[in-house]
Amino acid sequence: MNLAHPFVRAAGLALVCFVLLIVLALVYPGTWLLDTLTGLFASGLLVMSLHLLVGYTGLVSFGHAAYFASGGYIFGMFLQTPDIVAAFGAWSVPVATLLALLGTGLFALVVGLICARLSEIYFAFLTLAFQMLLVSVIQGLVQYTGGDQGLMGGIPRPEFLGLDMVQVKDRFVFSAFLFLAGVLVIRLVTLSSLGATLRMVRDNEVRTAFLGVNTYRVKVLAFTIAGAVAGLGGVILAILTSAAYPEWAGWAVSGEAIFTIMLGGLHSFYGPLVGVVVMRFINDVTLIYTTHTDLAKGVAILFVVLVLRRGILDWIIDLRAARRGRKEDDNVSRALSKAGKEAEDAAS
């Protein structure tokens, strides 16, 4: 049971964060920060779950937004059915959340079973094609999904456990819970033996297969978990906006998620979260001065890719490692850290 230690630590950290966020909700007087953070939780889960595929398994999915949207739609369509809400009463929101999680997981499983057979660019294109197919389906089934107008008329969210999703603070606390739960799941996966296997697949799939690992099955599993967690992100956004839109499944959302990961740092667990915050910042700040947010984003991407050549958090970590390396006189420890870095480089 030597694995228990990092697991417990991760869970403890999540609990501490949850308490801190609750305190924040209680003391913060306004609504702006809480709503902004709630929005960041949603995109945070999208990129963190995609990071499990891109960063840890080496599967570049161009269609991850499909699962994000699927979560939002399942949640919304469930709660927009009056009979179901009447039947479940106060338990409607938790049940809808669970259903969105399972439904999206199932959807990701099916797509994963088909896509995981391919590698690299073909995998990327196939995930993209499924995403486009989902958008056509959402837009086609107007009577169920509202077509291009999305789920209109608001999503009823009955109170549960004393939480009312119309209230900013209550909504924030529930979203924070979902967010931390989602991040914890991904953290536990990366810490577990499954996570180790995923990294092996990423680094060399053929050799991993030689070791007797069924890499196909492992990839499908990662794809399913990532999809389900992304669906949870969609649930948060559906709670916040009281709606769901076909744009959520668009290629632009997937593309931006990939960029966010690269911006924040591909090789650090929390890199994508840094990316989400920086991305939001670029967007909001440039919007104050100009409507040319795209230009600003484009220049920022080129800077990160061509100058830093790695994400922000990766860059900071490398910088700190380099500085520490200079300070330490102990040859042995320097050699050790160098070896560690080489291994890391080789891994990437």
């Binding site: 709503d35 906006t241 744009e247 909001d284």
Partner: peptide, 14 residues
């Protein structure tokens, strides 16, 4: 984008 419109409106108010 509709979701962006909702977000922008909330930001304008808050």
């Amino acid at each position: 984008k509709p979701d962006e419109a909702a977000k922008v409106t909330r930001d304008l108010l808050s």
